[in-house]
């Protein structure tokens, strides 16, 4: 058989090509995996309806209407849950032997993680836009100008990218797809609910309140809330970015390290 030779190009060219090829691969899931697409959109819409019309009437939000208060919370929760598809994707790839296959190729095999996280980022951007439109339909009245909207998008993207890399770690550590779904749920559920997403933290018992007011998800929510409906920004904006970047960098390094260790070192 006539041998086909690899095309001689620089290492950087091929590394970028590996990222692009695997991002493209994960990206088709957005459209082709209908179960995933539907749950990404319908879950947050249901939460929005639930809090807007069922619980909302009983919750006091000084200074703003409940739907305006709620919106930042729902947006961030959507992004946080949406960022866990990386975990499922990574575990599935390991289980199916796809990661093994990539490891046996002359490529940057951790590109498989980049593919999943970048795809989460794109998917979450799409679902954020959908959420804004649905929000407007149910009475959300933002005051943000174009620049403030860009800031909202920026904060949200850095945050969701960070959570995706964190969930890549969970995907690498988990043995089964069911297991990783639980692991991400057990993580995302408390950090999004024990925050200022749905109720003002002032109504919580003191220990819970201390956690809720100082954890990163609350900073991200408060920053977006301030940009959209004009609640006080305080130090939330900087803290949101600082936390997100810190989680992103630490998780990225840890995920790549675990990926390499888990699949070759021993």
């Amino acid at each position: 058989m006539k041998r086909v030779k690899p095309e001689p190009r620089s290492k950087i060219y091929w590394a970028l090509s590996d990222f692009a090829v695997l991002t493209k691969r994960s990206m088709v899931y957005i459209v082709r995996n209908m179960d995933q697409a539907l749950s990404t959109v319908f879950m947050p819409i249901m939460f929005l309806m639930l809090f807007r019309y069922v619980f909302g009437g009983a919750i006091e939000t000084p200074g703003v209407s409940y739907v305006d208060f709620l919106f930042a919370g729902i947006l961030v929760q959507t992004a946080a849950f949406g960022a866990t598809y990386t975990a499922i994707g990574v575990t599935t790839d390991i289980r199916r032997g796809i990661v093994d296959r990539f490891k046996s190729l002359p490529m940057v095999s951790s590109a498989v993680l980049v593919g999943h996280t970048v795809t989460d980022l794109v998917r979450n951007t799409i679902s954020a836009v959908i959420m804004v439109l649905v929000g407007l339909l149910v009475g959300f009245r933002p005051e943000a100008n174009a620049f403030e909207w860009l800031l909202v998008l920026g904060i949200l993207m850095v945050f969701t990218f960070a959570i995706s890399w964190l969930s890549a770690i969970m995907g690498l550590l988990s043995k089964t797809v069911e297991g990783v779904q639980w692991m991400t749920f057990v993580f995302v559920f408390p950090v999004t609910f024990i925050s200022s997403a749905f109720v003002p933290t002032a109504s919580m018992p003191s220990a819970l309140r201390a956690f809720a007011e100082n954890q990163p998800v609350t900073h991200v929510i408060e920053a977006i809330r301030s940009l959209t409906v004009g609640t006080p920004m305080g130090s939330h904006g900087w803290l949101a970015l600082a936390w997100s970047l810190a989680i992103l960098i630490v998780s990225y390094l840890a995920a790549v390290y675990i990926f390499k260790r888990k699949t070759t070192a021993n």
Partner: peptide, 21 residues
């Protein structure tokens, strides 16, 4: 170890590029 959501042809093309052809 094939990708379920890619077609047969797409699977092969992906592998070719990952072999750096």
């Amino acid at each position: 170890a094939v990708d379920e959501y890619l077609t047969g042809r797409e699977n092969l093309r992906m592998m070719g590029r990952l072999y750096h052809l």
